[in-house]
Simulated assay, not measured.
Amino acid sequence: MTYFNEKGAALILVLLITSVFTILGMSLISMNISNTKQVNLREGDLQATNLAEMGIDSSHNILNKQIALAIDDVKKDPNFRTSNHDRLFCQKLDNRIKLGVFPQTKQVNNESYKYTLSGPSSISCENLESIKINIKSIGTVGNMSQTQKTINATFTIGNESERESSERDGLNGPSSDLEVYTSTVNISGRSEAQYFSSMRFSNDVTLGGNGSLLIIGGEAYFEKLLRFNGNNAILTVTGDAYFNRPVDFRGLGNNSICINGDSYIYKNNKWETYHEIVNNDDDLCNTTVINPEYHYDVNRWKLINDELTVTY
């Protein structure tokens, strides 16, 4: 006769069930560990990206400070009144950058969280309409096992007044922030007068003699009379030109008006396009106006936020 040991069978069943649950439990623990690692990696990536973005924000503040210091340097320069302000500003900004603004590292909260900024050791002053500065920001999370994210940004520094002039409608009249010159201007012989900013002449301006030259580095507004009394005189304006009265040509001829922007005259209580202003010597005008370097207000150099480009 055969006997079946039910207690032994129950023990085996319990062991089998225990083994199954143990295996399932280990699988669940392994899945949880894997999921936790993935979550940590995602959080690390997000934190590193946030740190890199903080670096770009910090770069914005750093560059704003350097711009303000460069503007102050320009005003203190002994050649301020006799130099092109745009070029002088760019040179002063370049000097500031060369002092070692970059690279720099900033810890956030503790040493496990930081961003590192790298940028140029100098800048180019070839294009004075805008200055480009490339910055790389690296966000780092962790010490031994690090997670890093990099963001590259290009900042544009420009003159706010110059942008406003190019974007606004000239028929609305001259800019309100022009530098005012109240004295009468008389240029005779082969003399030359040059203004390194946008000007508003509130008195008469006369170009006499033979070969006199008046250069306005920016916008020009002639409130009173502009008169040519000689020969071969040249008026060069690298921005827009505004005339309250028609130009008085009294000379013997060969006088030139070279306007890089547009010309306007005040007639019938409004500003109109001044069609009578013609560059009557194109070769001469191209020589005096080509690649103009002009500025409106040295105080209005700033970062152009809508031209910031960022690459992740």
Rank of each mutant, 00 (worst) to 15 (best):
T147R: 12
S188K: 13
G142R: 05
K149D: 08
E179T: 15
A193E: 14
V180F: 12
D94H: 01
G170F: 09
A153P: 00
F196Q: 00
C125D: 01
G142E: 05
I123R: 04
R190V: 14
E164W: 05
N159Y: 00
S145E: 14
L117R: 03
T105V: 07
G119D: 05
Y113H: 07
I138P: 02
S166V: 05
V101C: 04
T184F: 11
P174H: 08
S191E: 15
Q104L: 15
P174K: 09
T105K: 11
S161G: 09
T105I: 08
L99V: 09
E167H: 05
P120V: 12
Q146G: 02
V180Q: 09
I131F: 03
S176T: 13
T116Q: 07
G142H: 04
I157N: 01
N172P: 04
N110H: 01
S176A: 12
I138M: 08
N172V: 08
V185P: 07
E179W: 11
K132S: 12
T156L: 08
Y195W: 13
V101K: 04
D94E: 05
G170S: 06
K136G: 04
F155P: 01
I97T: 02
N152L: 12
A153I: 01
G142V: 06
N134Q: 14
Y181P: 06
G170T: 06
E164S: 10
K92N: 03
S183H: 10
N134H: 11
Q104S: 08
G158C: 03
S130P: 06
N172C: 07
T147G: 03
S183C: 07
E111F: 14
E164Q: 14
S112G: 10
Y195S: 07
F155D: 00
N134F: 13
N186M: 14
L178V: 05
T116I: 11
S145F: 12
E126S: 15
L178H: 05
I135M: 02
M144Y: 11
I131Y: 04
E167Y: 06
Y115F: 15
I97P: 02
S166R: 15
E111C: 03
N95A: 13
K98G: 03
A193F: 15
N152P: 05
G139M: 03
I187H: 11
S176G: 07
L99S: 13
S124T: 13
I123P: 03
R163F: 10
G189D: 11
S197W: 07
S183M: 09
T116C: 03
T184Q: 12
I97Y: 03
V108D: 04
Y113F: 11
R168Y: 07
E126V: 15
S161H: 09
E126W: 04
N159G: 06
N134I: 15
Q107F: 14
E129N: 15
K98P: 01
